[in-house]
């Protein structure tokens, strides 16, 4: 049985906390279009000064990996510790690396 949703389309909200920083996922909102999505995002996620810039993306436009694909996507990285810089000697006198 399919039930028609009476909700507006869903949008994902990304907030940039300060200029130059990354946009981080904050949550989602419902809205009929991109302008309403931005306004709703502003009212729900930035009322305590959380950000200076917002992105909204309609949830349908996000393509993600699935649980079933998790192993083949990510497990091969588990035993390749040489990909992280664990074996470098710190140059003498370096404190802020």
């Amino acid at each position: 049985m399919t039930e028609k949703s009476n909700q507006f389309p869903q949008w994902e909200v990304f907030i940039q906390a300060k200029n130059g920083g990354p946009y981080e996922h904050a949550g989602s909102v419902h809205a009929t279009d991109k302008n309403m999505a931005l306004q709703n995002a502003r009212d729900i996620y930035t009322r305590r000064n959380e950000g200076r810039s917002l992105w909204v993306v309609q949830t349908d436009n996000i393509f993600s990996t699935t649980r079933e694909e998790e192993a083949e996507f990510f497990d091969p990285a588990e035993d390749k510790i040489y990909r992280t810089p664990n074996f470098y000697k710190m140059p003498a006198g370096t404190t802020n690396l």
């Binding site: 306004q39 709703n40 009322r47």
Partner: peptide, 11 residues
């Protein structure tokens, strides 16, 4: 009418 608008009006 929707949660988002409820918050907008009270804001």
């Amino acid at each position: 009418p929707i949660l988002e608008e409820d918050l907008a009006m009270t804001n």
